[in-house]
Design a protein around this nucleic acid. Structure first.
Lengths: 209, 209
DNA sequence: GTCTATAATTTGATAGAC
DNA sequence: GTCTATCAAATTATAGAC
């Protein structure tokens, strides 16, 4: 035992421990001591590798955001029918969130609580800048070939889709309490939701069951 | 033995200040000093009136929860048609959340981050215990008189409704960033959503536009 | 009831030995 | 690169005067 590892291995242990701790407790609730304990090292090491709590946090947030921020390009690729794009979107994020249930809650909450720590990172992301407009155009285009969705407003469609996919995870404790579902039962409901949500959205987009 | 009467006006100032601070920063991010400053008093007074930070928080959370926890009785009153109940629900919570935009984010986040501080309060609420079942029954009953919604699962309908109403507020910073909406534009979108959401749900429940 | 001053504890960060 | 020991600041909470 007590075999000293190389830098990258220690760094990796820190990253994993920091992800767990920040996701579970948020920036304000996370303690450097907890991260050190979970990584099996001491606090001094954390600062040796990542300097400050803020830098550690930014690293964790950046990874989390790129994993969960709605990838609008999935919804924007016009070579694929709109409904299929939506289906891919729902399936993708439901799967990702079932693997990391606190991801959405973490990102959404830090955006609310610590915007100043997070905004300078978001401003660095130029990739998102035109995607929203591209999505709107592609929905409007679809409206011209499908009378059923002529009145469908792109912004609201996007908010519907994202809300239906994300909130079940963000509001997990609320739903579990209200519906008296244990962990196993809740997982089943989440799995069912892939189909339920797609069916629901299909009804709206294509105007038929 | 002589019980000192606490100044209700000071107490009220503390309550308001605590609500603002906890809602904005969460339990972990809130500082007693900030609450004192905002109430125009000093920290000693806070402890004189509410003893500990935990007690102050529990008071704030209890009020917030009862304001925003989905009032399922709105959805359960079988003397009103299901679709009208849903409409009332959407209108009610959209209005409440537009008046207090951080309410949903606060409650949902504390349920995730500090369940131990919050669960003993939730356990004290017996009123919610049977409402979920009542809602399920009333939806299933409606299914027997309306072929269009025969396949509509009550749990998923509930999760759809709550997700569509709450997430636009919880995810407000995310949507504002993605869609490049300023405060004014976002308020307009939220106002539109009342009708958009109801239309969407009507389509599902009644199977028609 | 309200205040000032201060205690007691927690926490992020650093110094320095090995 | 890793550790122990410790600092400085922040933060909840209390003591005691008025």
């Amino acid at each position: 035992m007590a075999i000293k590892r190389k830098d990258s291995s220690t760094e990796q242990k820190i990253v994993v421990a920091a992800q767990k701790t920040f996701m579970l407790r948020g920036y304000d609730g996370a303690r450097m001591q907890d991260i050190a304990d979970q990584a099996g090292i001491n606090k001094a090491m954390l600062h040796y590798y990542f300097d400050t709590k803020d830098k550690l946090f930014e690293m964790v947030f950046a990874t989390a955001y790129t994993q969960i921020a709605p990838n609008l390009s999935i919804l924007t690729n016009e070579s694929v029918p709109l409904m299929l794009r939506v289906e891919n979107f729902v399936n993708h994020y439901t799967t990702v969130l079932m693997e990391q249930p606190q991801l959405a809650s973490f990102v959404v909450n830090e955006l609310n609580r610590n915007p100043e720590k997070v905004m300078h990172f978001l401003r660095g992301l130029v990739s998102d800048n035109t995607l929203a407009q591209a999505f709107m155009r592609s929905v409007e285009k679809e409206g011209k070939t499908n009378a059923n969705m002529a009145k469908l407003h792109p912004i609201h469609l996007l908010m519907h889709i994202v809300s239906l996919c994300y909130f079940p995870f963000v509001g997990k404790p609320l739903f579990q309490y209200l519906l008296k579902l244990d962990e196993f039962q809740f997982q089943i409901v989440l799995e069912q939701r892939k189909q339920e949500t797609i069916l629901f959205l299909k009804l709206m987009i294509e105007g038929k069951k």
